Simulated assay, not measured.
Amino acid sequence: MAPNTSVVNADNISGSKIVVQFNPIIQLPIKLAGSHNFSLWKAQVSMLMHGHNLFGHLDGSIPILSKTISKNNLEVSNLAYVSWFHQDQLIQNVILATVNATIGSTIASSPNAKVAWDALHTAYANKSQTRIFSLRDRLTRLSKDSCPVADYVHQVHSLCDELATSGSPVSNEELIVKILTSLGSKFRKISVVIRTRDSAITY
């Protein structure tokens, strides 16, 4: 006999909740469309799961429970598995609801939330050298030209986010050098001040 399981809305949590039900449209408005917004999508899902202490379903720290347990030398149904399965299915459904239709089949075919999460990392947080070299090359070639400073800095940060997701983060020093080098003569005084300040810092 299955245990009594209470399902609650994630935005109306009580201390007695066992299974958390989510509202992806409200809580997770960003849909995964590909590698270009994977970092942002991952952040919103991670924060929501951490907020409800459920991120373990994604990173494996909440282990997959066995469907049966041994009791009095007999194999019997594991009632704890039922609650785990309900929660894991709801988390997997959240992931499915927040990706583009072209990506959905990967999630739907996964046996649990962790496998789906790992599959997306393999596809979009690819640590292959080819992808890293491509992103590094784009960052190197990126120049301010005639675009506003804010837009240029935003483009630099976006590429740095993708590099971090791909496993090759850009250091703060690299980031500063990249931005200051491309600002041009109009911002030379600001660059000199920042470089002088940084060189004067001792550790």
Rank of each mutant, 00 (worst) to 15 (best):
S6T: 14
V8T: 08
A10C: 15
N12E: 14
I13D: 06
V19P: 01
V20M: 08
F22Q: 00
F22T: 07
I26C: 12
K31W: 08
L32W: 01
A33V: 15
S35V: 05
H36S: 15
Q44V: 08
S46C: 02
S46L: 06
L48C: 10
L48P: 02
H50S: 12
G51K: 05
N53M: 14
N53T: 14
N53K: 15
L54D: 00
F55S: 06
D59Q: 03
D59C: 03
S61Q: 10
I62T: 11
P63N: 03
T68L: 05
K71H: 13
E75F: 06
V76F: 02
S77I: 13
A80Q: 13
V82P: 04
D88C: 02
Q92D: 03
I95K: 00
T98A: 07
V99I: 04
A101C: 07
S105N: 07
P111G: 05
P111N: 11
A113Q: 01
V115M: 04
V115L: 05
A119P: 02
Y124N: 02
Y124V: 02
N126R: 07
N126T: 09
F133I: 04
R138P: 00
T140K: 15
R141M: 00
L142V: 14
K144L: 09
D145T: 14
S146N: 14
C147T: 14
P148D: 10
V149N: 02
A150C: 08
D151G: 05
D151C: 13
D151K: 14
V156R: 02
H157I: 13
C160I: 05
D161S: 15
D161F: 10
T165E: 08
S166Q: 10
S168G: 03
S168K: 02
S171K: 08
N172T: 11
E173M: 06
E173W: 06
E174N: 11
K178M: 03
I179T: 03
T181F: 10
S185I: 12
K186Q: 09
F187K: 04
V193S: 11
R197Y: 06
S199V: 13
A200S: 15
I201C: 01
